[in-house]
């Protein structure tokens, strides 16, 4: 695949750039959960500056809000979101970690009540620690972010 294909311009939509190589598919699966009809182009292992590689995702016709982008933050904390309108970058912002994640991840604790009840999961983000931890609103356990991002 030629690189230009992956970064080809779109008329209206969102380009998520500087995704760490390997996380693109995880983000893609989140996008598909949110909207299975979304028109998405994915570029994997593209050249990024010096020797690094990155993934890029383009979503046509969907202008991400900062809230939309926030749930991707665990996969790609340093990615950039470009909002494209009329082939122009209208807005550019870094993905930021939200204070909490609601209804996005399953609780890694298999004995957590959230698995057997009709409730949305809720995690509080603890950014002060490294690696970042998510604390379950229900079972009160804290988990490092890698538990959520492994294999999507």
């Amino acid at each position: 695949m030629r690189e230009t294909m992956a970064v080809e311009a779109i008329e209206n939509g969102t380009v998520i750039d500087h995704i760490p190589a390997g996380q693109g598919l995880n983000i893609l699966s989140r996008i598909q959960v949110r909207n299975s009809q979304a028109r998405v182009t994915v570029g994997l292992n593209l050249r990024s500056g010096g020797n690094g590689t990155k993934d890029i995702i383009k979503v046509e016709g969907w202008l991400f809000s900062e809230f939309d982008a926030a749930e991707m933050a665990l996969y790609a904390p340093n990615a950039t979101v470009n909002i494209i309108e009329d082939y122009q970058v209208r807005k550019k912002f870094p993905i930021g970690l939200p204070a909490e994640f609601t209804g996005i991840f399953d609780c890694p604790n298999s004995n957590c009540i959230s698995h057997t009840e009709p409730v949305a999961t809720r995690f509080y983000v603890r950014e002060q620690v490294r690696p970042i931890q998510l604390t379950c609103h229900f079972c009160e356990r804290s988990f490092t972010d890698s538990l959520f991002t492994r294999n999507g």
Binding site: N111, C112, I113, E117, C139, R141
Partner: peptide, 29 residues
């Protein structure tokens, strides 16, 4: 029956609920 439904029902009878449950987070829910 879900815990959610059981608690709905019990909460309409009682003035307070003391509970123990085998799952973590049950009381918060």
């Amino acid at each position: 029956e879900t815990l959610t439904d059981s608690i709905h029902m019990i909460s309409s009878y009682a003035d307070a609920i003391i509970m123990r449950h085998p799952r973590e987070g049950a009381a918060r829910l």
